[in-house]
Amino acid sequence: MIEKLILGSLVVLLYFDYQTLKQDKKSKKIYLMMSIPAGYMLYSYLSGRNLPNLDEGFQLIIGPIAEVITSWLQVKS
């Protein structure tokens, strides 16, 4: 419960931070763009669903190459 309250107040604080941008429309757009992944992760965290995240994205793109390199580097005992 406390966790949800803290995260909720964080969202309110971010809203006030967003309001400080006033007439700077381009900055506002970027701010909103950044808040989309934040909202997604907040939902993922609070719902406990463990939705796919940045590391899974990297894993998908780079994972196979990383696997080849590390399996070569690891010494089999």
Partner: peptide, 19 residues
């Protein structure tokens, strides 16, 4: 302008990326 929103993203990333 974006330090706080970036911090929020980092916080949520750190909470959700790893079990």
């Amino acid at each position: 302008h974006f330090i706080f929103i970036i911090s929020a993203v980092v916080l949520l990333l750190s909470l959700t990326m790893y079990k």
